[in-house]
Design a protein around this nucleic acid. Structure first.
Ligand SMILES: [Zn+2]
Ligand SMILES: [Zn+2]
Ligand SMILES: [Zn+2]
Ligand SMILES: [Zn+2]
Lengths: 500, 500
DNA sequence: TAACAAGGTCACAAGGTCAG
DNA sequence: CTGACCTTGTGACCTTGTTA
């Protein structure tokens, strides 16, 4: 009934990941959590386990590019160039990225304890709870002078976060009391060792909750949120319509920007999702790499255009290998989407991004998708909640088929064929081995940029490297988790609350 | 959705054993608590933090339930669901007080020696008294540097408990000296065996005193205390007036919530008694089961309504068996109550709850009623002190008669008559044997919920097994049930209320 | 010796301070 | 009024010395 039992033997700061990892039956589940597709053969497994080694354990640093991740550079660079915090990452691979924005994320997922009131960094255990200096002082003042704060201007439901904790004293004090701050709960002196384990657990729960709040507060003004997402989504649709169509030209399809521009629009749409940018850049890249196809498909399908061109971006497949079922699936998806309330489609697309893959080392996407599901219910009613899961399942099937196709195609090409030569029928495949320059961490030179770009963009719509391993994938996922758990337990002894 | 429905009538986070009430046989003695601990040392040198309870830990010791007490489920569940500690412990850090007290109880009834200064767990014999590490260090510092503490901000009468021992150094040092701490009283070396006995006696006295202090400290702010109780009492009266009246309708009286709602109000009133919640939950349930009648009677009688409807809840008795004396008694009670100062009536009612029954294994209710009597004197003067005892005597007589009546009634009913059929005259009796579902740990079905509810509520106003504390109330009532399956499986089962 | 208390130690929290 | 920083304790452990 509670997460505690599972948390006792699994990393307790990943409850959502655990839930998500549960396999649900192929029939649509009403769970708000995305479930990985249950059908074994069609769908691509998550590549998270392959992705994991790239990211240093439990930190959110930008990974140093590994050899086989070269082809992800395109989305990476697009994400980097459209986001504000990437300047730092170009300056230095590690330390530069850990500046302000990063720091917040890092403390969230790493071992820093957060204030239970405002989610700022806690300076210690004050009045019975972990609290920052600000909330500690605020509470002390509140109880010393019997301060009567002005009543809340809202319904006394203000979310208290670091940024806005001074806006409503009433709600701040209320939150202080709600989390258990009390003069009776003071603890002096050295912290008993036995308590440290408990404190650590407490911290994990608090951190998850604070992440939830961080997300929720960005959805307070729902109409503004919807406007922002709708706009970005419309731009994306518009872009797709313009850039879609047969590309039987004599120019290289990639250089014509027919792909880059929609890709940019897709990323812009993702960035328009409130709180999406609070996900680590590396994880954003990963999510986008796994969901561009879905995004474009959904956006295309939702367009009022009478015919849905497929695949998105206008790339045609080898006719010989076409699966006769595919048009049918597309048709079905398209119909179901258009039956939904128009406002719900961007939200569904946003969910598709957040649920693109399961990343055990990053739970924010799941929390964000929780929030989005709730928004979906508010905006679109029950219908999208019911249709959504099965829709995602089919989209994923399609994505899988698409990737397989591309992989097959890519094996029939040599790199030399690609460059400079128009490829009217097939999507240009990724290189199976990256050029030497990719292994260097320095920024690519101007000269190689063109080549790289071709390779990168082409492989975008291909699958990340790991080839489908079938239904046994969940086991693969759970194994590394278990190992993580062991590590953490050992670390428990030396929990540092990190004073400064 | 499914969670909420089961949770409504069967708190699913509790083991079933907690729902069915404890049944201590009339002959059961409290010997299990008075036996000395098995360990050779009375002290726990490795004692954990004084503030350990600050972090919620919902472990409660409850006696093993017997099977024929099924009908007590209703109050039990109401208590459980209206009490914050168990309810919110899942959510986490929300409280401090209840778990503090709970922990206190545990250490009190176990063989741990408490600090004679602050009632924290003592770490040994320091400076001539049993003292915790904190008071030991405090006293050492006080005598090493001859510290002159700032004078007490009150009248130097601060109660020193572990939660507030740091608020007034002056009074803490005073208390240290008062209990006999002295540099000259140091004792070195191993403790002679014969002294352990003396230590043990000391411990008992200290424990009682510390419990007294624990209670007294919650009555420090008398006006706040009175306000809280008065409010809850007013709500109860209001509820009773609304829900009282003949229920000769075509609907089953119980399903109309005419009883559940006042019951809830009565429990809320009990919970508003300061320090009442520091009584073990199981004991709270027992007290309430033995006092709802009194509470409702007193609350009704105190209402300004011209006519007192009886019995509370509007349930009518068989007219044939009415005792002509009854109206007279009711009238007398009502008159005497209304002569009292209005503020004293809630206190009297609170005393009725605490003195509902004598529980040899739990002395807190008696200590609490001592405190309440003292409050009664402060608030209402001598008059209530004089009237109270005789009043209680009559109320108990009435309760007794009421119970006899119900018991008689219940024997003339078969269970089948009850269900679905309006019972305008008689209070529906309890089943004499519980349905099979009560023994299973799975949640009851919707269908059996109705039955269960009827049984439970009905038996609320019937007599629990033992009536006592009245001088003229003999044992004959203690054997109403044919089959007292007293399977007292050896005690001390630890029940995890499960929090995280 | 083992058991046990005085005294020391220092990680930590309450409360004060004072620019911002 | 806020909160980073500082001062003043506090008390969980540890070391040292005493006694049955
Ligand atoms: Zn804070
Ligand atoms: Zn507010
Ligand atoms: Zn003490
Ligand atoms: Zn004082």
């Amino acid at each position: 009934m509670d997460l505690s039992s599972t948390g006792s033997h699994l990393p307790c700061h990943l409850p959502l990941s655990l839930l998500t990892n549960l396999q649900s039956s192929p029939t649509a589940s009403s769970s708000s959590f995305s479930s990985p597709p249950a059908s074994s053969s069609l769908l691509s497994p998550s590549s998270s386990s392959a992705f994991r080694p790239v990211i240093p354990r439990a930190t959110v640093q930008i990974p140093t590019p590994a050899i086989d991740t070269f082809y992800m550079t395109a989305i990476q660079s697009l994400v980097v160039s459209t986001t504000s915090d990437d300047q730092y990452s170009e300056l230095g691979p590690l330390e530069g990225t850990t500046s302000i924005t990063k720091d917040e994320n890092a403390s969230t997922s790493a071992g820093t304890i957060l204030c239970q009131v405002c989610s700022d960094k806690a300076s210690g255990f004050h009045y019975g709870v972990f609290a920052c200096e600000g909330c500690k002082g605020f509470f002390r003042r509140s109880i010393q002078q019997k301060i009567q704060y002005r009543a809340c201007t809202r319904v006394e439901d203000c979310l208290i976060l670091r940024n806005n904790r001074n806006r409503c004293q009433c709600c701040r004090l209320k939150k202080c009391l709600a989390v258990g701050m009390s003069r009776d709960a003071v603890r002096f002196g050295r912290v008993p060792k036995r308590e440290k384990a408990r404190m650590f657990e407490e911290m994990q729960k608090t951190n998850v909750q604070s992440q939830r709040d961080q997300i929720a507060i960005q959805y307070e003004n729902l109409s503004e949120v919807m406007h922002k997402m709708n706009h970005a989504f419309a731009v994306l649709q518009n872009t797709l319509e313009k850039c879609t169509g047969p590309i039987y030209t004599d120019r290289c399809p990639i250089s014509s920007n027919f792909i880059v521009i929609p890709l940019k629009a897709a990323i812009d749409f993702a960035n328009s999702i409130p709180a999406f940018l609070s996900i680590t850049q590396a994880h954003r890249v990963h999510l986008l790499q796994n969901s561009v196809f879905d995004v474009m498909l959904l956006a295309s399908a939702a367009s009022s255009t009478s015919s849905l061109s497929f695949p998105p971006g206008g790339i045609a497949y080898d006719q010989n290998s076409s699966n006769p079922m595919i048009p049918q699936i597309i048709q079905s998806i398209s119909e179901r989407i258009r039956q939904l309330p128009p406002q719900s489609i961007p939200i569904l697309t946003a969910i598709a991004v957040c649920q693109a893959d399961i990343m055990p080392d990053c739970q924010q996407p799941l929390l964000l998708s929780d929030q989005l599901w709730s928004v979906l219910g508010k905006v679109g009613g029950v219908q999208p909640l019911l249709v959504g899961p099965s829709l995602f399942k089919d989209v994923r099937s399609l994505r899988q088929w698409h990737n397989d196709r591309l992989r097959h195609v890519s094996q029939n090409f040599s790199p030399n064929q690609l460059l400079g030569i128009p490829q009217p029928v097939y999507l240009p495949p990724a290189f199976l081995s990256p050029p030497p320059s990719a292994t260097s961490s320095s920024s690519t030179s101007q000269k190689s940029e063109f080549i790289e770009r071709h390779q990168s963009i082409a492989s975008l719509l291909e699958r990340p490297r790991r080839i489908s391993s079938g239904p046994q994938e969940p086991l693969n996922l759970s194994l590394p988790r278990h190992q993580m758990k062991v590590e953490e337990v050992e670390v428990d002894e030396e929990v540092q609350i990190k004073q400064e």
